[in-house]
């Protein structure tokens, strides 16, 4: 059981029968009044956000969530297949559940899969991934008129802005939280 003073950003708990994560948290206490805990929370199943205010005597059940280290094996159509690193059990997740993560996933990548009540509901990628550029316009040396970035496509089909010196076939590092280019990876 959690009590209100345990509430903080990132805590996962049950509310109205669904698992939620607190995405924003504010403590407030009017003069002479009760402590109030205002939480912005995201439903981990539907993705919907809600704002709720709790009091100091409110109690919460922890969400029965489990995170497991898994390896992304391959995608087949709409299904993404993963293998548990410990017991080699394989599972499949539908593309919709993965959201933007599919932009950064390549075969054999190690990820963390979040299970609720035994079924996978979300994955966490490494913060940085290295992906190969599969399509890029050549860099016109001495071109000072253009902007300082250009669009490229990486092996997952994801398109992003990079510095003009990046060429086809090179590897680049991408921050999976923002989807932005970080640096060129030297092989």
């Amino acid at each position: 059981m959690y009590s209100a003073s345990d509430l903080r950003k990132g805590l996962k708990l049950m509310l109205d029968g669904d698992p939620y994560i607190i995405t924003d948290f504010e403590f407030s206490k009017p003069g002479k009044g009760q402590s109030l805990y205002r939480c912005k929370m995201r439903n981990l199943l539907s993705g919907n956000s809600t704002v709720r205010t709790f009091r100091s005597n409110d109690k919460f059940e922890p969400a029965p969530l489990e995170e497991r280290d898994m390896q992304f094996l391959y995608a087949q159509g709409n299904e993404y297949n993963f293998m548990d690193q410990e017991n080699y059990e394989q599972i499949a997740m539908e593309r919709e559940l993965l959201g933007e993560a599919v932009n950064f996933m390549i075969d054999n990548m190690e990820v963390k899969v979040l299970f609720y009540d035994g079924r996978p509901i979300d994955i966490t990628l490494p913060i940085f991934v290295n992906l190969t550029v599969t399509q890029a316009d050549p860099w016109a040396k001495g071109d000072t008129s253009g902007t300082d970035t250009k669009p490229v496509t990486v092996e997952t089909g994801y398109e992003l802005q990079v510095p003009p010196f990046i060429e086809e076939g090179q590897k680049i590092q991408i921050d999976t939280r923002s989807g932005e280019y970080m640096t060129r990876v030297k092989e």
Partner: peptide, 11 residues
């Protein structure tokens, strides 16, 4: 419900 309304709506 005074404190909650104060914080959520009046303030």
């Amino acid at each position: 419900d005074f404190d909650r309304l104060l914080v959520d709506e009046v303030e």
